[in-house]
């Protein structure tokens, strides 16, 4: 059984603010991360644009996990985008994630544009945690 889980290709969908990471240089033509091909990226003008329903859509259609990556807290180019999406995913601001969404599979990263390596490390740690769930 565990072998089957290992063999099953994993897909992670990341919603990334174009100002939080040098994301253009980090993706290949298939929109996968060069350093981690399992992770596919959707680029947005701001992390605040992410709708919780879009994360649910990814999970419902086969993604093992999904995450939002925004600018460092206090440094959103549009002032409040990262604050709002964090509050939404933590269930403190409408619209929220549905109650039945597996929140262990929803990640959040808030980084500066110079934080490529710390981001990749945090992503790897997040993926390990998700892998434990199966």
């Amino acid at each position: 059984m565990s072998e089957q889980v290992e063999k099953k290709p994993r897909v992670i969908i990341g919603f990334v603010c174009e100002r939080s990471l040098p994301i253009d240089q980090m993706m290949d033509a298939q929109k996968a991360l060069v350093d981690d091909p399992e992770t596919k990226i959707i680029v947005l003008p701001c992390s605040g644009m992410v709708k919780p329903t879009q994360l649910e859509l990814a999970l419902a259609n086969g993604a093992n996990a999904t995450f939002v990556c925004g600018c460092a807290m206090g440094d959103c180019h549009y002032r409040l985008g990262n604050v709002f999406i964090k509050e939404r995913l933590e269930g403190e601001r409408n619209p929220k994630l549905r109650k039945n969404t597996d929140k262990r599979r929803v990640g959040m990263f808030f980084v500066t544009i110079k934080d490529k390596q710390p981001f990749l490390e945090a992503l790897a740690a997040f993926k390990d945690k998700v892998a434990e769930i199966g």
Binding site: P9, V11, I13, K31, K40, Q54, L57, N61
Partner: peptide
């Protein structure tokens, strides 16, 4: 957002 959602589904298809 409709384009974004279509992109999500397309990425899941190519990834799987």
């Amino acid at each position: 957002s409709k384009t974004i959602e279509a992109d999500v589904l397309a990425l899941l298809k190519t990834g799987a």
